[in-house]
């Protein structure tokens, strides 16, 4: 579009303040990380001399880093499909006329808007070995006092964290997919019914393609959130026991703010940004966000 010079001046003056702030948090950190990651700053010494790729080479040998990345991937790979499938199932349940639907929906919104740290705190109340309701219900079912250490026992921490995570974000999927399902063209469904298509066929041939754009965006948003998973894990296990549930975000936090490995953390942060940028670029190409 051709703009007159006065319109161009006007439009540039509108974007300038925002761009300035975005550069501050978007580009400054990147440049700064790049500089620091080539230095040798740690808690004990303020070594700003050029260290070459030393920090980046350390990345490859850091078992704990790759473990944390693996944990992040595990959380994402389990939570995301479950949230999607459960959310879709719930949306299907609520799509037809149901008495009291607005009330149900209003209540189901609540977990989504709670702060993740509060959600984590809530579930640590739920999981409490002695005073929590979960163990109480299990005791009641097994008919005897049961003490399960949900957030401590290695084979239970993952289910525990995943339960909290799924509890908070399944309603997100549900709300988006419910909206998408209600927007499906009813006359197409009626035409399919007249043509004699069964439920599965209708679902896969008509409903799924119709809601796919929304589904793709929901998946993208949730995948990116899961990749930066921090709060819920922090509230429930702080990455423990040991480093068993440490995500990449928690790892970077521990390195940067508890062990003060400044330069190394910069390298880690850079790696996260690069890794994510690649994923996001690939994803954005497939998802129609820009109208």
């Amino acid at each position: 579009m051709r703009l007159s010079s006065r319109d161009r001046r006007f439009s540039l003056s509108l974007v300038a303040p925002s761009i300035f702030l975005l550069l501050l948090v978007g580009v400054f950190p990147l440049v700064y990380l790049l500089v620091v990651s080539f230095q040798g700053i740690t808690m004990t010494e303020l070594d700003t001399s050029f260290q070459g790729l030393r920090n980046f080479r350390m990345l490859f040998d850091d078992e704990r880093l790759w473990q944390s990345l693996l944990h992040t991937v595990i959380f994402t790979a389990i939570a995301l499909p479950l949230e999607l499938v459960l959310g879709l199932a719930m949306a299907q349940l609520f799509i037809d006329k149901l008495p009291g639907r607005p009330v149900f929906v209003a209540l189901l919104v609540l977990p989504v808007v709670v702060s993740p740290i509060v959600a984590g705190a809530t579930w640590s109340l739920m999981f409490d070995q002695r005073f929590g309701p979960i163990n109480e219900v299990i005791s009641w079912m097994l008919g005897g006092e049961t003490t399960i250490l949900w957030t401590i026992k290695p084979d239970l921490v993952y289910p525990a964290i995943l339960l909290a995570e799924i509890w908070q974000w399944t309603p997100f999927m549900f709300l988006l997919l419910l909206a998408a399902l209600s927007a499906v063209d009813k006359s197409q469904l009626e035409a399919a019914a007249i043509d004699g298509a069964g439920w599965w066929r209708t679902f896969f041939r008509i409903v799924l393609p119709a809601i796919w754009p929304v589904m793709a965006i929901a998946i993208l948003i949730r995948a990116l959130d899961l990749f930066r998973l921090f709060d819920i894990v922090w509230a429930l296990t702080k990455g423990g026991p040991g480093t068993m549930t440490e995500t990449i975000s928690i790892f970077a936090y521990v390195k940067g703010f508890q062990q003060f490995e400044t330069s190394y953390t910069a390298a880690v942060a850079l790696m996260i940004i690069v890794l994510l940028s690649v994923v996001v670029m690939a994803a954005l190409k497939r998802v129609e966000l820009t109208r």
Partner: peptide
């Protein structure tokens, strides 16, 4: 510009907050 702006939303906070903290 539009795409760059929305991609800013996707950056993990931990990667941003670290250099910001030093600043």
């Amino acid at each position: 510009l539009a795409n760059w702006i929305i991609s800013q939303r996707m950056v993990p906070p931990i990667a941003v907050v670290f250099p910001i903290f030093l600043l």
